[in-house]
Amino acid sequence: MSLEVLAVDDSRTMRDLIAHTLRGAGMTPHLAEDGQHGLEVLEGLQPDAIITDINMPRLDGFGFIEALRADPRWRGLPILVLTTESAPELKQRARAAGATGWIVKPFDAEKLVKALQMVAG
């Protein structure tokens, strides 16, 4: 069974990279370009996991996660945060918002796949 993953990032390059990596790992990527867009895209999806950036226009990563956790449909959905800083506060903040885990940039295909497997199988 191929995992379906929604990746939310405002950088096209990042989206491209994530999509490429996911496909390479036999997963199915879905893409959105900010939190708001992510919520819209989710309406037609039942993903196995979500990867989201923090800094995004309109609705940032924290807001996005909070919105997801407030919705019973997505309450248990694994959500990984893409962050540039490995600072403990940031992880704490991500977790407080409801994130399942985090991936510290720079983007690393192997880390990404591994993290996804840790939260979604």
Binding site: H30, D34, V41, G44, P57
Partner: peptide, 19 residues
Amino acid sequence: AEKSADKSADKGGDKGASA
């Protein structure tokens, strides 16, 4: 999914460069 991304981007934000 990409199509829907485009579609919703259409009504979407004018902020942010790539968006």
